[in-house]
Design a protein around this nucleic acid. Sequence first.
DNA 1: CAATGAAGTAACCAGATGGTGCATTAGCGG
DNA 2: CCGCTAATGCACCATCTGGTTACTTCATTG
Lengths: 213, 213
Amino acid sequence: MAAKEAPKQRDAEATKGRILSAAKVEFAKNGLAGARVDEIADRAKANKRMIYHYFGNKDDLFQAVLEEAYVDIRTAEQKLELDHLPPREALEKLVRFTWQYYLKNPEFITLVNSANLHKARHLKHSKVIEVVSRKFVTMVGGLLDRGVAEGVFRPGIDPVQLNITIAAIGYYYLTNRFTGSIVFERDLTAPEALDERLQFNIDTVLRLVCITP
Amino acid sequence: MAAKEAPKQRDAEATKGRILSAAKVEFAKNGLAGARVDEIADRAKANKRMIYHYFGNKDDLFQAVLEEAYVDIRTAEQKLELDHLPPREALEKLVRFTWQYYLKNPEFITLVNSANLHKARHLKHSKVIEVVSRKFVTMVGGLLDRGVAEGVFRPGIDPVQLNITIAAIGYYYLTNRFTGSIVFERDLTAPEALDERLQFNIDTVLRLVCITP
DNA sequence: CAATGAAGTAACCAGATGGTGCATTAGCGG
DNA sequence: CCGCTAATGCACCATCTGGTTACTTCATTG
């Protein structure tokens, strides 16, 4: 039948996608309250009416953006295949990945901050989040167990606390890089500064987890 | 004559103070864009006109709130008198303090997040911040040096990185406690959970800094 | 090919929101 | 007790903003 990928003049999926991307940018830049629906429509090269047609209202659009952001990071994490690596290298790879993901996807951080400003009410009843999150926690738990079994990791470490710490030491540095650069009178965004921070973080985590760092 | 502390009907300082407190609450709860000037006026039991009279505009008011928040935490830190303690205990005390300050002053975290969403433009030319920050960095730097001299801390640790890490492992947990509770399917705000996190953080920092944790 | 429903558009609206003009009044110095 | 300055209050405005109404255009299919 129709040409497989004929450039349709009307394409619901494409429009929806453009709106979602545009919304991600706008929400990340200005927060939920600061984001402007008109601006999203413009950036998406769509009519504002389409936003309400596909997503209902501003809040629901934000929720859709947020869910997509979580699915994206969790999907990327699953592709790490940490099982194929010795525990210590796997752990280092996870710290590296987390840092680099935040660095390459700065909007993720801002979106999560906005979600938390609103006490995560946009995720509270999201089934998608539940599913992808569970796989993620399991992954790190498995890695810890394996490391303990092989005698390289300390036993008794709570995988949730470790997860939080790995995220924290990267996330905090990056969200607060603007105030941080002022407080510490040092450009925290310079490439060398970023490299230095990653090394420090790897060191921190290895010292926390490994028996002989 | 009137009693020494006669409640004046007109009191510029008091009104200014009420506006500042009210603004802190409102900005912390809703962010810069989400905060409502009328709501601030109501909460301060002041007329909206007064806000513009004393602070100029919404942005300048936000800046005033932010500066006060920074001065407050830095002042509290200076009162710790870490010099009077052995390095190891001093470090633990600092980690404890940071955690508890965030817990007791949750608005600090949200305000800093808002400031960073706006790339810290509200602090960029603030002289106050510069002064209080410098004293703070010096304090931790001094502690590290002393610990190294006494042979209990590893040498070569960057005080800025350490500062950031101490803040990060508490701050991240607390800002993201809402999404975190969903992702990890565990109530991160329960008192036991908070205690557990503090212990984990102390452990993390001591392992990072001390020669024999 | 007509009809049908979905995709898309433009103009519009009501309420909210940051910000002001101006009159009023308290309190202090003289 | 007077007059001046700074504190306060009210009413008001211009604009913005999320959301909607009413309409057109396209693509598919019976």
